[in-house]
Amino acid sequence: MTSVPILQLKSISKSYSHGIKALHNVSFSVSEQEFVYIMGRSGAGKTTLFRIITKQEEPDEGEVWIENERISSIPQKKKHLVRRKIGVVFQDFNLIDYKTVFANVAFALELRGLSKKYIQKQVEMALEIVGLSQRTQNYPQMLSGGEQQRVAIARAIVTKPKILLADEPTGNLDYKTSESIMGLFSKINQMGTSIVMATHDLDIVSGTGRRIIILDHGEKMGENCG
């Protein structure tokens, strides 16, 4: 593992109307090929943090750096360029119902105007990694929760992002399925992608030996190795 930071958050603060403090002075960095957990209860600020990293929201204070580029200085019109560096996976999968497994994964590349041939090759590779090569023509509603999350992961990695953000990716899955999804994340991490995963499930993080950042009421309470 190298120590080159791929993601850096410097003193991030964010408040909403009515004085609700979502984040207060949160700083951390993620190195290349590192796997970091962000732990905290519901409302701790995990999702707000991800929304700031993906430029869905702007912090009131602080800076976010991705690959040595300060993303807060990138104009709103070009925020898609930031998002292209990041893969995202959500708790509720966020798949498009009217698209097949293949089309859902291919969509991420189609939006970038890439060639059909390239898309075909990359989608096949991504589906191979997540173990869904046989389900390409199925629609999301024909898949189990675990399979749907695999499609979402394939869609997140098909663009070969440097960093993958996963917001409670096992929140809607049973224990066994969660374990297999976590195995998949480990595999993706070993292939070179940095992963930042938000979770409140202690079973997932314990015994992994990975770095854990603990958030509570929008503040970073600590950082340790699980």
């Binding site: 869905q56 898609h80 998002r83 292209r84 966020n94 498009i96 991420a108």
Partner: peptide, 15 residues
Amino acid sequence: KEISIMQLLGATPGT
């Protein structure tokens, strides 16, 4: 929902 997915996948506003 689809618009929000497209945004997170890096689609330009024009797309």
